[in-house]
C-alpha cells in the first residue's frame, strides 16, 4: 500500500526510517447528490448571502466565531502559526499501554520499515511486544503537532494519534453522581449469566446490514439496466485484430 508520509522514529541515539500507511478504511454507504434532470453530481458554490455573489477561493477569509461575531484572521496570519514538518517521530518515553485511556485513541496507522530501517524496526517491534510498552512521542503531520503512541500490532508497529486530555469528556458529565449499591447475590447471578453467554469473537461475522441492503439494491438496479451485455465478445474482437495485424505484415512483403 502506498505510504502517506515518510520519516524516522527517533529515540535515544536510534533513528528508524519508516513509512506511514492508513490502517482503517471507511466503507459506509455514501450517495452523491445528483441533478434530477441530468444526473450529474451537483457543484457547490461559495455564496455570500449578503452581497448576493459567488466568492472566489483566493478571496476567502477565515473567521473565528465568538458568540454572534467573527474575529477575522488572514491566511498569512494562520500560516505563521503552522509548524514546520520535522519528519521525525520523537519518542519521549515508553509507558504501559494500560496507562493510556482507551478514549484517547483517535486514529490508527501502520508503520512500515523504510529502506535501511528493517533491522532496527524488527528490533523495536520485538521489544514492544515483549514489554507491552507503548512509545509516546510527538510528530508534525499536516502542519499540526500530534501526540502519538507507537504500539506493537501483529507482526508490525502501529502509530495511534492520541487525543489531548481536554478532548476527552469527563465521565461525570454523563453519569449520575452515584450508582446504587449492589449485593453479592446480584453480582453472582449476573456473573453466571455472563459466563453462560461467553463466546469467541469472530469479527468477520458482523456486517453492516444497511450497507448490504443498499448494495443489493444497487445490484438489482444494475441488472435492470443490463450493463453486462456485449462484454463477452471483447476478447474475440482483440483476437481478430491481432490476426489481422499479422496478416497485414505478410501482405506487405
Amino acid at each position: 500500500m502506498r505510504s502517506i508520509w515518510k520519516g524516522t522514529i527517533a529515540f535515544g541515539l536510534v533513528n528508524i526510517p519508516v513509512a506511514l500507511h492508513t490502517a482503517t478504511r471507511d466503507y459506509s454507504v455514501n450517495f452523491k447528490n445528483l441533478c434530477p434532470v441530468h444526473h450529474v453530481p451537483l457543484q457547490y458554490k461559495k455564496w455570500c448571502p449578503e452581497g448576493k455573489e459567488e466568492i472566489d477561493y483566493k478571496d476567502i477569509e477565515k473567521g473565528y466565531q465568538v458568540g454572534k461575531n467573527y474575529v477575522v484572521i488572514g491566511q498569512k496570519e494562520l500560516d505563521a502559526l503552522k509548524l514546520e514538518s520535522t519528519h521525525t517521530i520523537d519518542i519521549e518515553k515508553f509507558v504501559d499501554s494500560s496507562e493510556i485511556p482507551i478514549l484517547a485513541y483517535d486514529s490508527f496507522y501502520f508503520l512500515s520499515p523504510d529502506r535501511g530501517g528493517e533491522k532496527a524496526y524488527a528490533l523495536l517491534h520485538e521489544v514492544l511486544t515483549l514489554t507491552g510498552k507503548v512509545g509516546i512521542g510527538k510528530v508534525v503531520l499536516h502542519s499540526k503537532e500530534y501526540l502519538v503512541g507507537l504500539k506493537n500490532y501483529q507482526r508490525g508497529i502501529i502509530l495511534i494519534t492520541l487525543r489531548y486530555s481536554d478532548e476527552i469528556v469527563n465521565i461525570d458529565e454523563a453519569l449520575p453522581n452515584t450508582l446504587p449499591e449492589t449485593s453479592e447475590k446480584e453480582v453472582d447471578l449476573a456473573r453466571t449469566l455472563i459466563t453462560k453467554m461467553e463466546g469467541d469473537l469472530d469479527f468477520s461475522e458482523y456486517r453492516d446490514r444497511y450497507r448490504e441492503e443498499v448494495e443489493e439494491l444497487v445490484q438489482k438496479k444494475l441488472k435492470g439496466e443490463a450493463i453486462v451485455a456485449e462484454k463477452v465478445t471483447e476478447t474475440e474482437k482483440t483476437k481478430d485484430i491481432l490476426a489481422a495485424l499479422e496478416k497485414s505484415i505478410e501482405a506487405r512483403y
Binding site: 448494495e215 444497487v218 445490484q219 444494475l222 450493463i227 462484454k231 471483447e234
Partner: peptide, 12 residues
Amino acid sequence: PFKIRILSRELP
C-alpha cells in the same frame, strides 16, 4: 469489495 465485484462484471 462490493464495487470490485460489480466492476469485475462491468469492466472485466
